[in-house]
């Protein structure tokens, strides 16, 4: 008969050194991999900043307020691109936010059977998956010819305002705004939908319990409770819209002449980069890098504000 193993066999098993080594090595490896995010981010900032140094020294802050873009005389100013970036991003959000929020309410607030709601949600998510370059192709050949009569109508009726003062002729700022609407709509819808779904059921029940209508509850209880996440989502989409490149580049016209009119061809920082960076040399590269710095700072500020909004205004009820 075998005797029971001595207690030592259980208690004295030391972890073999290679096991410890693997453990420590793995931990250090993952640490390095996690740190790589910070390293990449820093590298991006440093690379773009150092590339822009020459232009920053030459043009200074005047770069932001002048609109000359003249490779022959080496005069550069990014006003057209900065104006275009801000105008397209902000106007597209003004259109997309009500539509996205309305859609989110429509698919969260019991207006439809669940299956139908999920289907609409899925369709909006699939819209987000379509590559921006495909949307750009569609915008060139389908959307822009289709909306041109409407833009012409805008020009004839509102042509006395500077914003519609030019005749629409193909690519321009207005079609770029519309394609941006299509691109940010899914983001706003998805984030608003999550925000609305997270409002506790007690709040809805309480609101309905005191006899409010559905929209009374939505406007007075549910939306105020979800407002911080929705605002965060809106800011995030603003960052996206400012950085969006391909679809806008293909439809905005890439003009180097400043025009306030939305119907005229315009430019954005990202489309200027997409168009010129590959062929530029000398100080033009540096000027483009300077524009990239401006874009990076804009998106950085907006993204940090987005995170701050979500944390600061987080649900108060």
């Amino acid at each position: 008969m075998r005797s029971a193993p001595p207690i030592d066999a259980f208690t004295l098993r030391r972890r073999p050194p290679q096991e410890k080594l693997v453990d420590i090595g793995f931990r250090q490896l993952t640490l390095v991999l996690a740190a790589s995010v910070g390293i990449v981010l820093l590298a991006i900032f440093l690379t773009v900043f150092s590339g822009a140094r020459e232009a920053m020294a030459t043009f200074g802050l005047k770069f932001l307020t002048t609109s000359a873009w003249d490779p022959v005389n080496e005069e550069y100013g990014a006003l057209i691109a900065i104006y275009g970036t801000l105008v397209t991003a902000i106007l597209s959000l003004l259109i997309a936010v009500p539509i996205g929020l309305g859609t989110a309410i429509f698919i969260t607030e019991d207006l439809l059977p669940r299956r139908l709601r999920d289907l609409i949600g899925l369709l909006v998510e699939l819209l987000a998956a379509i590559p921006s370059v495909v949307l750009g192709l569609w915008a060139i050949f389908v959307m822009e010819p289709a909306i041109r009569p409407f833009l012409s109508l805008l020009h004839t009726t509102l042509g006395w305002t500077p914003f519609f003062a030019t005749e629409p002729q193909g690519p321009g700022t207005a079609p770029a705004i519309l394609i941006l609407v299509v691109m940010v709509l899914p983001i706003i819808t998805a984030i608003s939908r999550d925000a609305l779904n997270q409002v506790p059921i007690e709040l809805r029940q309480g609101a309905y319990g005191v006899g409010t209508t559905r929209w009374g509850a939505i406007f007075n209880v549910i939306l105020p409770a979800a407002v911080s996440s929705i605002m965060g989502g809106v800011m995030l989409s603003l960052g996206r819209a400012m950085g969006e490149t391909m679809a806008v580049t293909m439809i905005i016209g890439n003009s180097l002449n400043f025009s306030v009119s939305l119907l005229a061809p315009g430019n954005t920082i990202s489309s200027m980069l997409a168009n010129q960076f590959g062929e530029a040399d000398g100080i033009q590269v540096s000027a483009l890098m300077y524009a990239a710095v401006v874009l990076m700072i804009l998106t950085f500020v907006v993204n940090v504000l987005a995170q701050w909004t979500v944390r600061r205004l987080s649900l108060r009820y």
């Binding site: 981010l41 991006i44 960052g239 990239a292 874009l295």
Partner: peptide, 21 residues
């Protein structure tokens, strides 16, 4: 935080970065 910021960096900037690097 850096990960969220990196997610928000416009894709064209990634191109500029790798181009220079």
């Amino acid at each position: 935080f850096g990960n969220d910021v990196l997610a928000g960096v416009p894709s064209i900037i990634c191109g500029v970065f790798i181009y220079s690097l």
